[in-house]
Nucleic acid binder design. Structure first.
Length: 115
RNA sequence: UCGGGCGGCCAGGCGAUCGCGCAGCUUUUGCUGUGAGGAAAGUCCGGGCAUCACAGGGCAGGGUGCCGGCUAACGGCCGGUGGAGGCAACUCCAAGGAAAGUGCAACAGAAAGAAACCGCCCCAUGCGCAAGCAUGGAGUAAGGAUGGAAAGGCGAGGUAAGAGCUCACCCGCGCACUGGUGACAGCUGCGCGCUGUAAACCCCACCCGAUGCAAGAUCCGAACAGAAGCGAUACGGCUGCCCGUCGUGCUUCUAAAGAGAUCGCUACGACCGUAUGGCAACACGCGGCCAAGAUAGAUGAUCGUCCAACGACAGAACUCGGCUUACGACCGCACCGACAGC
RNA sequence: UGGGGUAUCGCCAAGCGGUAAGGCACGGGACUUUGACUCCCGCACUCGUAGGUUCGAAUCCUGCUACCCCAG
């Protein structure tokens, strides 16, 4: 994922936490704010597990979001992992991510997207 | 063969597609190289480095604690001494001082540093034919009961009964002697017989300035205004207190208070081989080989294949030496024990 | 990254070397026509865990584990 598509700075995260629309399932939460830019951030707290588990969860989330990036509407996204996410396989996470993106209605139909 | 003891090594490999951090080259798009650990962990010690303070001293405070060596240093390592465990190989040990002083030792028990409850023995008086009993006095630590611990152990002599009271042997402590750098060991001589606890206070010896890379340095931008008070005191630093010393004008109110960038940032210390010294830790010489450096934080996804196995424990954040803890598999030993065979 | 604290019954907790207080809750009984109140009785063999010191450890020492808090 390119740096321009990442969410940096704590203040950007706080902004999304304050203004964002929220969608949740058992493993993940998603916060979304409309914006000109398209940036994605990930938050995995210590409740999820030790450093190895947190890093793995974050990597899997990044990898799950990356192919969907062109189809997503521009805006600021924050994915928050909940403790159940540590047990998930990559495929499960991928389907959860898609589900949440549809829930906030930010995922365009793949047909609309033209490279 | 089984069970143990000690030591060592590895940390999934290869290929394909997509993707990430850093560096270089290109230039606007890619290419090449490279990219977590033995514990990166816990943060329990000790160095480096940085800032502040250096005129130090005293009292507090903290740490270490058998001896010798190694090390930049250590609470680490090596080799010994003593003790404990084990049939053994071997392993483990905060292992100075209880005769400087204070405290504590519940319950039990007569008594917990000095002791007479029962008992034993003697004397006197009374009763009784006697055996003996009662009362009083004196002696006694051999026996009883309690306890974690009861005043060195055991045997003999001795005695009214007893007692290191005396003697032999053993144990322990101190001094002298011998060996050893030393802890200590040895045996002889002399003297003595002292409860335990210092991971209770404490004493003795040695060591310790504070804070930590979010340390700290540089740059850009913004701001840099006003009022009052104090005046040789005030404030701040030197871990706490006292002395002392150093620095600065200081303090309060109102107003304004910000987001960054760069450096620090990783290659000069590990590792491998080898010569020399040393039992060893280690020292020293020569040769070789190593290049993560992010700043919401880089290693993943899918497939194939080897494989018993998705692989165990687990993710760098200034850095190094240790310690501790977590954990998968493998190998070696002219190391030990048991059983069987030759 | 650095620093500090806590862990004792189901819950809140006292205890600081000598047999683990107390309250709530819970169980049984009494009182009452019944319930509540009240009264009586009961309720901690590993004091988070593993070792050590001591005659004796929840307490002292050491190593772990979990949780909470503070600074930036």
């Amino acid at each position: 994922m390119q740096r321009q598509n990442r969410l940096g700075q704590n203040r950007q995260f706080s902004y999304v936490y304050r203004r964002g629309k929220k969608a949740s399932c058992r493993e993940l939460s998603l916060l979304y704010v409309r914006s000109k830019e398209k940036r994605v951030g990930f938050s995995v707290s210590k409740k999820v597990g030790v450093a190895v588990v947190r890093n793995r969860t974050k990597r899997r989330l990044r990898e799950a979001v990356r192919p969907l990036l062109p189809q997503m509407k521009s805006g600021l996204y924050v994915f928050v992992a909940r403790p159940a996410a540590a047990e998930c396989s990559f495929q499960e996470l991928e389907s959860r991510v898609k589900y949440l993106l549809r829930k906030v209605e930010s995922l365009r139909a793949p047909a609309e997207e033209h490279k």
